[in-house]
Design a protein around this nucleic acid. Sequence first.
DNA 1: CGTAGACTTGAGAGTCATCAACGTAAGTGG
DNA 2: CCACTTACGTTGATGACTCTCAAGTCTACG
Lengths: 250, 250
Amino acid sequence: MEAKTDVPTSPMEVTRGLREACMSCSLHELCLPRGLSGHDLERLDTLVDRRGPHHEGDHLFRVGDRFESIYAVRAGSYKSYTVDSEGREHVLGFHLPGDLLGLDAIYPSHHLCNAMALDTSTVCALPYDQLSILSGEISGLRVQIMRLMSKDLADTATLAGDFTAEERLAAFLVGLSSRFRERGYSPREFNLAMSRRDIANYLRLATETVSRVFARFEKDGLIEVERRAVRLLDLPRLQSLCEAMGGLQR
Amino acid sequence: MEAKTDVPTSPMEVTRGLREACMSCSLHELCLPRGLSGHDLERLDTLVDRRGPHHEGDHLFRVGDRFESIYAVRAGSYKSYTVDSEGREHVLGFHLPGDLLGLDAIYPSHHLCNAMALDTSTVCALPYDQLSILSGEISGLRVQIMRLMSKDLADTATLAGDFTAEERLAAFLVGLSSRFRERGYSPREFNLAMSRRDIANYLRLATETVSRVFARFEKDGLIEVERRAVRLLDLPRLQSLCEAMGGLQR
DNA sequence: CGTAGACTTGAGAGTCATCAACGTAAGTGG
DNA sequence: CCACTTACGTTGATGACTCTCAAGTCTACG
């Protein structure tokens, strides 16, 4: 387990509503159910295989695992990552409740990355063959799957750009902030579920650089940061720092 | 127009089969028709609105344009790119025949990037609402759309890693090589449709760096390059240079 | 033939990585 | 309860890769 500083809202560590059906799930608007009516929702619900809890360090899937299901994060958080031939780890994304995991495995039908819980976390597993059939019958489901994949595409592309360490970290914080807001948590104050090393591997920086930029941001009055507890003091200025990137993150 | 050196196979500049139906299209196996039977293929075919030719510099769509269709490249090549608030251009990808364009626009329902022809090029436009309906009725089509989106996701993620200029350029060449092979062209000898500047913006390098690495590769006997004509002399060694990246590119 | 744009090559500078040391927090076992 | 261990995070010094700036070359095309 990690540092548990007492910051008011720590969304990444909250596990609420574990037993809820899609219909009453608080992630309704972010996740696959979005836009579905009562009956269709029930049909989706019968597909869902709720799994977990996974504890920090547990793997949801690993590179090479046969692709069977798409996962929707239900509570907690996961990171997806690969390890290259030199042993360097590349973090592909951090996944909060409502996010889908495993989409890149559809094409090759086996997983291309690892997914690891950062917290005590749970997922809804959706068997892909069944989901595919159901999405043939429910246009709203099809639409939403495409929307979410499309969003992933755009987000990943954003990160692929050529930006400075400050732009990257600012965009990372701003992106987390909006995602917390979407989920009903404070956009100004939160705990990071991931280590400095994970952030660095995600942003393609050295952990030392992440530390230093955090320190610089704090000195400049942009944020307060103590270990994993972060408070955004000047969101507008953070946003202007990363406006070149267009904003968000995964 | 660009340099037209006489290299045997110059796939990016070939425009063949402009009038073919999906059924007889040579891109059959790469593009949406893959796996579809005769009747389903005909239905897909009725959706297709063939457009072009676009000439070098022509735009297929621009940032902010309303999203109406997905495009499948039919002949020639396109680049997709954005311009950030500092005026820097970021190339998101190069698109060869059989590739889909515009997928990232589904979510926000307007285009997030620009798409420009690098050559004299044509596309098949597929109205998204109709495609969505049809994909509800033809599971094979649904499967293939998902497969192609999934592939895009994986490719983009690859480029997002932290790699040296040599790794990037080697991966770029190796990736192009395999894509040409898939399309029936020589994987060892081809013309680049894009400028050094485009390559640099794609790989997040300076154009000068691209030049220098090309020169270094040539000095080391890995390639021969004269302006846009490229010959890969030592594919295995190029592959080993970028094995850290896992290989391919978009 | 001359200009424009693409490309190449060289020199210097800057950002960020690497190496290293140190501080802090949490867990273990005596 | 304290020494020890381990992982994480911070801070400093050095250096490398790549960018920027600048000049020069080549090709295409008017």
